[in-house]
Structure formats: structure tokens, C-alpha cells
Computed example of a mutant assay.
Amino acid sequence: MALRSLTKFNFVRQGARSLSSTASLVSVEVNDKTGIATVTLQRPPVNSLNLELLSDIRYNLTELGKNKSRGAIITSAFKTFSAGLDITEMYKPDIERASKFWNTLQDVYEVLYGSAYPTVAVINGPAPAGGCLLSMCCEYRVMVPNSIIGLNETQLGIVAPPWFASTMENIIGKRQTELALTTGRLFSTDEALKVGLIDEVVQDKDEGLQKANAFLGKFARISPFARNVSKQTIRGETLKRMSKDRENDLKRFIQVITQDAVQKGLGLYIESLKKK
């Protein structure tokens, strides 16, 4: 797990400091010169979002906010950005853990989508479902070629929650979102760029980090207060609706994943993964 104190730094390279231990599911390095943090997801093998990984993400993003971060870059230690929500959290679930899992995902969304600091996703590999959500929460997205991104929940027999849909709609519009959600579409890198789901294509992660730092550098001379108020003006209504509906959203989630048909579909999907 992440270190529980921001005063416990381990120097990992010149000009940067680590906010978390090497055993963490999330590594955070803050550049001392720019104040920009690189948040790297590192739960093997593909950053499936289970309760523990989501808890680490929530903690570290919250701490960056408390310390008035100048910006955060979200990326992955692997060739997959994030494979999405961990299916095992929903298959034959323990209801108490499943509830905590969903509440933590809600927390991560509110912390990231509503962050006072600017954010960039460096999508260095596939980002389906929950991976797409994390990316969409950021204000700018760059992505490597020959990859995929999208909310493909319907392909698994489940439904993307309203706040997933609203977030996508805010980016690519209602019509494209409707088509994407009902078909469970996964966009290629070029397709995602065309519809505006991502902002730039980069050749590799290193170039992505350069582009991310360049974007965040634009805010160096802009009032953090004015920038954040402007962001909340755009995102505030979506956040308010999600926050107001959290309890009902949890109930819907539990109702969906406990349906026999959904359990059967998740079971078949897990079996298919074992054969790969």
C-alpha cells in the first residue's frame, strides 16, 4: 500500500521524489521543479481495478490535492493502461466487499474528475471500460498507436452507470455516446482521435509523458484558483448528479451483478480469459 505520510520520500531520480513505497499498487513521483506528479498504476499484469488498487488510487490522488499539486499525469507501468474493473470483484460476490469496491470506485471518480489540479492521461496501451473511465476523468488524453479505448460493458451483459455515460457524453456528444454504449464499442487509437475521445496520438510512453508535461506546463502562469473554478463550471453539474445518486447507484450495481444471467455471463467471460 502507499505510504501514509507525504513526508516519507524516497529519492528515485534527480529532480523527483516518490510518494509511495516500491511495493505499492500505485507509484507517485513529484518533480521538484515543476510540482507535477506522475501517478503510475502498477498492479500486475494489466492494472485490473480491484478494491485495493482503487483504494491506492484514491489515497494518492487525495494527498496530491491536499498538497496543492500543480498537476498529475496518470499512466501505467505495463503495456496495458488498465483492463478495467476486476471481474472477480463482481463474480460470485461477497456483498459487503462488492459494496465497498463500488463506493471506492465512486470516490476515485469524484476525486479525479473533480480534482483542483489539472490532469493528463498517458494511455500507453488498451483502456477498456474502467480504464476508459479513468482516462475520461482527466482533462487531456494522449494515446499510443494500435490500441483500444471505450466503454464496452454491454458486451459483458452489464450496463455502464449513468455517470460513466455522462462523462463520455461531455467529451464526444450524446449521439456518439449512445452508439458507443449500446454497441459496447472499443475505439482504435485513430478512431478515438477522430471522435475526440483522445486529444493526441503519441508514438510511445516517453513521448506521451513529454506531451503531458507540456500541456500541464501551460498552467504555470495561470491562477490555480481561476483555473479550478473554470473546470468546476464545466464539470460541476455532472459531479453533483453523481454525488446525489451515489446510494441508488450502489443499489443498482448490486442488483445487476447478482442477477443469474449476469453471473452466467461473467463466468463465461472468466473462462474465456483462462483459455487465452
Score class of each variant (00 low, 15 high):
Ala226His: 09
Pro118Lys: 03
Asn146Phe: 06
Val12Phe: 10
Gly125Ser: 05
Gln232Val: 11
Met136Lys: 10
Thr177Tyr: 02
Leu197Ser: 05
Glu139Ala: 07
Leu54Phe: 12
Asp199Met: 01
Lys244Cys: 15
Ser27Ile: 11
Lys244Asn: 13
Leu193Thr: 01
Leu51Lys: 07
Gln14His: 15
Pro44Asn: 04
Trp163Gln: 12
Val30Asp: 06
Thr182Phe: 12
Thr182Tyr: 12
Cys137Gly: 06
Ile36Thr: 08
Leu134Asn: 07
Arg175Cys: 15
Arg221Ala: 12
Arg4Ala: 06
Ser99Tyr: 00
Lys33Trp: 09
Asp206Glu: 10
Lys205Asn: 06
Val12Lys: 11
Gly184Cys: 01
Lys274Glu: 13
Leu268Asp: 10
Ala77Thr: 10
Ala165Ser: 09
Glu89Arg: 02
Val229Tyr: 13
Ile95Lys: 08
Leu41Gly: 12
Thr182Cys: 07
Tyr113Trp: 08
Arg252Pro: 15
Leu239Met: 05
Gly196Asp: 02
Asp204Met: 02
Val201Thr: 07
Lys264Thr: 11
Lys79Trp: 13
Tyr269Pro: 14
Asp245Asn: 04
Ile57His: 06
Thr154His: 03
Glu139Lys: 07
Gln203Arg: 11
Phe219Lys: 10
Phe187Leu: 00
Leu54Asp: 14
Arg58His: 15
Ile57Gly: 13
Phe101Val: 04
Leu239Gln: 06
Arg227Leu: 06
Leu105Phe: 04
Lys244Glu: 13
Thr62His: 11
Glu271Lys: 04
Ser147Ile: 00
Gln210Tyr: 14
Thr233Trp: 13
Gly157Thr: 01
Lys8Val: 15
Arg235Trp: 08
Glu247Ser: 11
Ile57Arg: 03
